[in-house]
């Protein structure tokens, strides 16, 4: 009788210990805890998740495979609050001015690549309007800027900086590529073209910091 009681007490103690240990067990270590309902992620990460109403172009429902190498660095400028414009790039031969087919144009800010057709044109690209933070609180930039690189076998790489973009507007730009001439081109290096800021904004910028005691060319006037 006494032994029976002792066995019962032992069994209950073991059961209670088991239940208690289970409740304190770190469940994220369990393989079953990988289901979305049980994921407890850091707050910061959850904030970065795009809302369903956000404009996130080219999103796919395909579940990413961790074994696959990500195609981008993870930097996504297409966050909510940013605007987009439509961009179309034309790639031409800098000497003959004829369109180049099959050139690959990369939009650096989105790391997306586009091929040119027989007319040297890429498809219409939904591209972000990114204004420089340097001037944000001083003088509003009138346009955002993008950087493009065009690649084509037999041609110098062409870097095109400062492509002007505006929210909801359509923008066209042309990239000149120069054919590599064997024997003449001893150093194969990229060619850069920097599109300047619009003159209307440069006038505003100069006027913004002009001191009445040091007028320089003076304020914009008729």
């Amino acid at each position: 009788m006494k032994n029976k009681n002792v066995i019962q007490i032992l069994a209950r103690t073991l059961l209670a210990t088991g239940i208690l240990s289970l409740s304190f067990f770190p469940i994220h270590l369990c393989s079953a805890a990988n289901t979305p309902a049980n994921v407890s992620q850091p707050m910061q990460f959850q904030q970065q998740q795009p809302k369903p109403t956000d404009k996130t172009p080219n999103t796919t429902d395909k579940t990413p495979n961790p074994a696959e190498k990500p195609q981008t660095s993870g930097y996504d400028p297409m966050i909510s609050g940013k605007g987009y414009g439509n961009l179309r790039v034309k790639v031409i031969d800098g000497r003959t001015l004829k369109p180049i087919e099959g050139a690959e144009v990369v939009v650096l800010e989105t790391e997306k690549r586009y091929k040119t057709d027989a007319n040297g044109l890429t498809p219409w690209i939904q591209a972000p309007v990114l204004r420089s933070a340097r001037f944000r609180f001083l003088v509003n930039e009138l346009h955002g800027q993008l950087t493009l690189i065009s690649y084509k076998n037999g041609y110098h790489d062409s870097i095109h900086m400062g492509v002007r973009m505006n929210e909801g507007a359509t923008t066209k730009t042309t990239i000149w590529q120069y054919q590599i001439t064997p024997g003449v081109d001893r150093r194969l290096e990229p060619i850069v073209y920097i599109e300047p800021y619009h003159r209307l904004w440069l006038i505003q910028l100069a006027d913004r910091f002009r001191r009445p005691s040091q007028l320089g060319e003076g304020y914009e006037r008729p």
């Binding site: 003159r199 209307l200 006038i203 505003q204 914009e220 006037r221 008729p222």
Partner: peptide, 22 residues
């Protein structure tokens, strides 16, 4: 024409016979 000033009718340009772009 000249740039003129933003958000402004730029009357002074009218007096000069020059269009203000802004």
């Amino acid at each position: 024409y000249r740039a003129g000033y933003e958000n402004n009718p730029n009357w002074q340009y009218r007096n000069a016979g020059i269009m203000a772009q802004w």
